[in-house]
């Protein structure tokens, strides 16, 4: 039987959390995929559920403040052109992230640092924009406590902003490590993993941006009558599934 072939794929200790500071070559793994990369994928799957729960909460309360006539309303507050620009900035940072990875893979360390810095900078512009947006909304009367729109909006977008901030700190850490000569070409996996995280956070923003900003809210005047039923979004989905079966 194929023991000889199997031996070639065998691994030694296989522990992977030396974060690239241990031995240069990692012992091969059962799947061939780097363990830290697999860890990041597992984390991202879980993180999807984190955002999922928050998005479900947001969708549950979408329209609730209008129904109950508790201002401020989203259509009075949200500034779609402004946020479109910052969304564009964030998307561009995914591009620079790709460039950073390809730079280190080619051994171009100067390029790596330039693109890492650019990505962090674009991310910071996004977070700065969000900070400004939050302050602006606050002055227009939108608070965490005042109505459901405020609470669910700030928590959802704030959670995302926290993700971006952590990403920026991570990128800057890589930048400093690289400056001190600690990021050689063999350690490009460190950049690749940070990149996975960064792209994920970008993609999530596309979803949030669509659900929170782009899909239009019904103006109060157009609301036929306040929906008496406070059905939750989750159970609405369930009844939808139910009606399909019936």
């Amino acid at each position: 039987m194929a023991t000889a072939i199997e031996l070639e794929t065998s691994h030694g200790t296989g522990h992977g959390d030396d974060a690239g500071h241990g031995h240069a070559e990692h012992p091969p793994t059962s799947t061939g995929m780097d363990s830290r990369k697999l860890l990041m994928w597992a984390f991202l799957a879980s993180d999807t559920m984190f955002f999922g729960a928050l998005i479900a909460t947001y969708m549950t309360y979408r329209g609730r403040s209008e129904e109950l006539a508790v201002p401020p309303y989203p259509f009075d507050i949200l500034d779609i052109p402004y946020t479109s620009i910052s969304a564009f900035v964030l998307l561009m940072s995914s591009l620079t992230m790709v460039l950073a990875l390809s730079a280190i893979q080619r051994g171009n360390y100067r390029g790596l640092r330039v693109w890492l810095l650019a990505t962090a900078l674009l991310g910071s512009i996004f977070v700065g924009g969000q900070y400004f947006e939050f302050t602006e909304f606050y002055h227009e009367g939108l608070t965490l406590q005042g109505n459901m729109f405020g609470g669910s909006f700030f928590i959802l977008t704030g959670f995302h902003g926290t993700h971006v901030t952590i990403g920026i700190i991570w990128l800057m850490t890589l930048f400093v490590v690289s400056l001190r000569g600690g990021l050689s070409r063999e350690k490009s996996m460190n950049v690749e993993i940070a990149g996975l995280y960064w792209h994920f956070v970008d993609i999530v923003w596309i979803v949030i941006f669509t659900l929170v900003y782009l899909i239009p809210y019904e103006e109060v005047e157009n609301l036929a009558e306040p929906a008496a039923q406070g059905y939750l979004w989750l159970s609405t989905m369930a009844s939808y599934a139910g009606s399909l079966i019936r």
């Binding site: 909460t57 549950t60 309360y61 609730r64 403040s65 129904e67 109950l68 508790v70 608070t143 965490l144 406590q145 005042g146 109505n147 459901m148 609470g151 669910s152 928590i155 406070g230 939750l232």
Partner: peptide, 23 residues
């Protein structure tokens, strides 16, 4: 905030925010 209760006390006023304990 009032994610899990229908009412909230904001600046001394009780308002119906429509938070839902069932969530």
């Amino acid at each position: 905030t009032s994610f899990f209760s229908a009412y909230n006390l904001v600046d001394g006023n009780l308002i119906t925010t429509g938070g839902d304990p069932l969530l």
